[in-house]
C-alpha cells in the first residue's frame, strides 16, 4: 500500500515537471520527485517490529540504518541541485525578464 502511495507521489512530481511552464513550480516538482525516492529508501529500510537504529544498550531488532545514511547524502545532493536551479532562474529573470517557459521558448 505504502509503495503505491510513494509511486503516486513520484508520478505527481514528474507530472509537475513536465506540465508546468513556470520555472519555480518546476523546481518544486523536482523536489517532490526527489522526496518520493527518499521515502522509497526509508520504506525498504523498515524491519518489521524494528525500533529506530539508536544504541539503547540492550539487544533489539532495529531498522536498517544504511539507507538512512545514503538518503542523508542524497538530500544534500538534492539541496545543491535546488539551489543551483534557483540561482539559474534568478539569472534568467535578470536577463530575459520572465520565468515562464513558453515565453522563454521564443528566444
Amino acid at each position: 500500500m505504502i509503495f503505491v502511495l510513494d509511486i503516486v507521489l513520484l508520478l505527481i512530481g514528474l507530472f509537475i515537471i513536465i506540465r508546468e511552464t513556470n520555472l519555480i513550480k518546476k523546481v518544486i516538482g523536482l523536489n517532490i520527485f526527489q522526496a518520493s525516492v527518499f521515502i522509497f529508501y526509508l520504506i525498504i529500510s523498515k524491519v518489521e517490529n524494528g525500533i529506530p537504529p539508536i544504541l539503547i544498550g540492550a539487544d533489539a531488532i532495529y531498522s536498517n540504518p544504511l539507507p538512512h545514511v545514503l538518503i542523508l547524502t542524497a538530500i544534500v545532493v538534492g539541496i545543491a541541485t535546488t539551489s543551483l536551479a534557483l540561482a539559474l532562474i534568478v539569472s534568467i529573470k535578470k536577463k530575459h525578464k520572465t520565468i515562464e517557459e513558453d515565453e522563454l521558448d521564443e528566444i
Partner: peptide, 22 residues
C-alpha cells in the same frame, strides 16, 4: 543568451535521470 535556459533545462532532465538511477 540562451545558455542559462539550456543549463536549466539540462538540470531538470539530468536530475530526473539521476533520480531514476537512485
Amino acid at each position: 543568451k540562451g545558455s542559462n535556459i539550456a543549463a536549466l533545462q539540462y538540470l531538470f532532465i539530468g536530475s530526473i535521470g539521476a533520480v531514476f538511477i537512485l
